[in-house]
Design a protein around this nucleic acid. Structure first.
Lengths: 210, 210
DNA sequence: TTTGTTTTTGACCATCTGGTCAAGAGCACG
DNA sequence: CGTGCTCTTGACCAGATGGTCAAAAACAAA
């Protein structure tokens, strides 16, 4: 299943450096907009040296995306069917927001891949992703049927969590431009989204400000 | 202010064809991923002929984005301070969703520009966009102060409308992959988002299913 | 038809880009 | 030191790409 781990320490270190550099460049310019020279320079390696560690530009990109999907889906996997519905979903939202804040480059890389039609990841979407989402959607539907959450379409509820949290990473420039320099987007996002989702989920007893 | 309109009919027609082709290609591959040959081919023109109508690749891209911003902001401009708060905001959301459905290429083009840090549109964000949003945020804040809407941060409320509506255009592949072939994302989106925002806005008297 | 203007194109070019290669540097081990 | 292995690089290449240009085709006006 897993590819053979690189043997030496230096290989492991340099592969990591390349991947980090590539993440920086790919997330900013997209796959075709990125150049091997840029990545090599960012990684502090010569281009041929970079190609000693990875077979091709696409190899780097694929490796990056592959390692990403699992990480990205982890918060959803962690959604516990046995926990309290509100707590679980709010916690999921917060975890997702944290990931957007802590790994904006990863978020943007993923966003670009999807916007462009997921040309190099498409298959995984219809299988792994769909299966996981369907599974969790069933759990949520069950919660709703039990009257523990306000009724709505579970799939779209999940979409709304993705959309609202990733927005702050993917459209960060726009958010900052609109809010101005004196505000902290991430702090405000957590406050706002908590209230937002409490309402959407149909909280029974929040301290409703006013 | 406005550039001199092209004189002949054929110029107007061919410029339009180029822009449409460019929109197709840019929105799919990003600026650097798109090639003049692709655009020319898509427009049914030879590359030199294309460059007879536009000075450069960047010229095409800038023209496209420039014409876009106004259109994209129109729905927000139309938000009426004198109307009913719930109706106005729900109508805004629906108009935005319709635009995402009817002009997904425009949405994706814009999304890519923002994700990449708005390198060719950045200035407009901090001025035109910010001013308009600030203005409308004030209106919304007023509505909230009058108790006509549930309290929350107006700027982030606007972000949430952008985010949730554009998601269905920008991440359409993902949405379709997750929902499967037998569902209609756009129809469901309208239904879902209506309920979603009724809750967020603090509807006084919805038919609450259960 | 003649003349002047707009449109179109084939040929061409400089540069960039992903990728190769052979040779060299560094290094571990006997 | 010598031997073999990993790592690094300068030089190079083929193809793609943005853009130019002079000349030809279309077209409009007289």
């Amino acid at each position: 299943m897993t590819a053979q781990k690189p043997r030496t320490r230096i290989q492991e270190k340099n592969r990591a450096r390349v991947l980090d550099a590539a993440l920086e460049v790919f997330s900013q310019h997209g796959f075709r907009g990125a150049t091997l020279d840029q990545i090599a320079s960012e990684a502090g390696l010569s281009k041929p040296n970079l190609l000693y560690y990875f077979a091709s530009k696409e190899d780097i990109h694929v490796t990056l995306l592959g390692g990403l999907v699992d990480t990205w889906l982890a918060p959803l996997r962690a959604l516990n069917p046995l926990g309290d519905p509100h707590d679980e979903l709010l916690a999921y939202m917060r975890r997702k927001l944290q990931m957007s804040r802590d790994f904006p480059r990863e978020s943007r890389l993923f966003a670009q891949e999807i916007v462009q039609g997921a040309p190099r990841i498409g298959d995984g979407l219809s299988t792994d992703l769909k299966d996981l989402v369907d599974e969790k959607a069933t759990v949520i539907a069950q919660w709703m049927a039990e009257g523990k959450l306000a009724q709505s379409d579970p799939h779209h509820l999940i979409f709304s969590i993705w959309s609202l949290t990733q927005h702050y990473a993917d459209f960060e420039v726009q958010v900052r431009a609109v809010l101005g320099d004196n505000r902290d987007p991430w702090a405000e996002a957590e406050t706002y989204l908590t209230v937002h989702f409490q309402r959407v989920l149909g909280v029974t007893d929040p301290m409703h400000g006013q």
